[in-house]
């Protein structure tokens, strides 16, 4: 088991022939991901990285049976690419693209209701199920198959946590980068639920940041229904109010979405909160021994 993607996932790349898409598709294939083709409108019929290129996602679904798509399409066209994948019935849509206008995502969010697709991101590093499938841009070599599920809003900070977990001798089931935008397809809570239901995952690491209330929502659910130890960190304890800290979604709007407020709620809900991001791995190791 694992969540969202595994060795049987048939992955297509939207924006396959662009520079980002090409590079990362190559890296995914190298990791062992079953990349079955890609989509670039107008280039259908060509072959790229030894795989077929399709004009539409529908064609790709019909001819390859793909169920996972990863999107590298530039921001002005990314929302359309997501909705095309939804329309074609893709189960898991991972959107790496950074800089999609918020109002475009309002439409995407609405379009998703009533469909069974799960959107990850946008503005995220993607998903890795260790030793099985890499769908996104995370560096594969830091992962090792193990028992910890990781959900995070950021990129390199996720790698940091993954690396600490590997060095603590634990390894990962799946790591999900959910993205740093104000509107994202999969919330912290969605990811936590998936990990709680995954028999292989024994512990969960939840990395959040300032802005919004996703971590508080997840914490309250964990308090009521959680069955596995959860380690949490919130980045931005020193961030000033009202400034956008890189990610479009990382901005303190009120008292409830500061790092301090989120950490307090998480602590109250029984999560092992670390103050320092250097202690994520060792805290998970200790929590797994204790519980």
């Amino acid at each position: 088991m694992s969540v969202l993607v595994n060795k049987d996932s048939k992955v297509i790349v939207q924006g396959f022939t662009g520079s980002e898409g090409s590079f990362h598709a190559g890296q995914m294939i190298e990791y062992g991901t079953n990349v079955v083709g890609g989509v670039t409108p107008g280039k259908g019929g060509q072959t790229h990285l030894d795989r077929p290129v399709f004009n539409t996602v529908n064609e790709a679904v019909e001819q390859t049976g793909t169920d996972v798509s990863v999107i590298f399409v530039p921001p002005p066209f990314a929302a359309d690419a997501i909705m095309e994948a939804v329309d074609a019935g893709i189960k898991v849509i991972v959107t790496i693209t950074e800089g999609i206008p918020t109002q475009d995502m309002v439409k995407v969010k609405e379009y998703l209701t009533g469909h069974s697709s799960r959107l990850i991101g946008p503005n995220c590093p993607g998903i890795i199920t260790a030793d099985e499938a890499k769908v996104g841009i995370m560096p594969g070599f830091i992962f090792r198959k193990g028992s910890v599920g990781i959900v995070s809003r950021s990129g390199t900070l996720t790698y940091e946590a993954v690396d600490q977990v590997t060095k603590a001798g634990l390894g990962q089931t799946t790591a999900i980068g959910i993205g740093g935008d104000p509107i994202i397809g999969t919330s912290t809570l969605d990811a936590v639920k998936m990990f709680m239901n995954d028999p292989e995952t024994e512990g969960i690491i939840m990395i959040g940041e300032i802005g919004g209330n996703m971590e508080a929502d997840a914490a309250e659910w964990i308090r009521d229904y959680g069955s596995k130890p959860v380690v949490g960190f919130i980045a931005g304890q020193t961030a000033p109010k009202g400034r956008r800290m890189g990610h479009a979604g990382a901005i303190i709007g009120g008292k409830a979405d500061t790092a301090a407020a989120k950490m307090a709620i998480m602590r109250e809900c029984g999560i092992h909160v670390v103050e320092s991001p250097a202690h994520i791995g060792e805290t998970m190791a200790r929590a797994l021994k204790k519980d």
Binding site: T156, E209, A235, H247
Partner: peptide, 22 residues
């Protein structure tokens, strides 16, 4: 990376310094 940058600011604070920037 923005998340790691915020986390680094936090570490500076925890180490007795104060971040001068993001």
């Amino acid at each position: 990376g923005a998340g790691l940058a915020m986390a680094t600011m936090d570490i500076i604070k925890l180490s007795g310094g104060d971040p001068a920037n993001f």
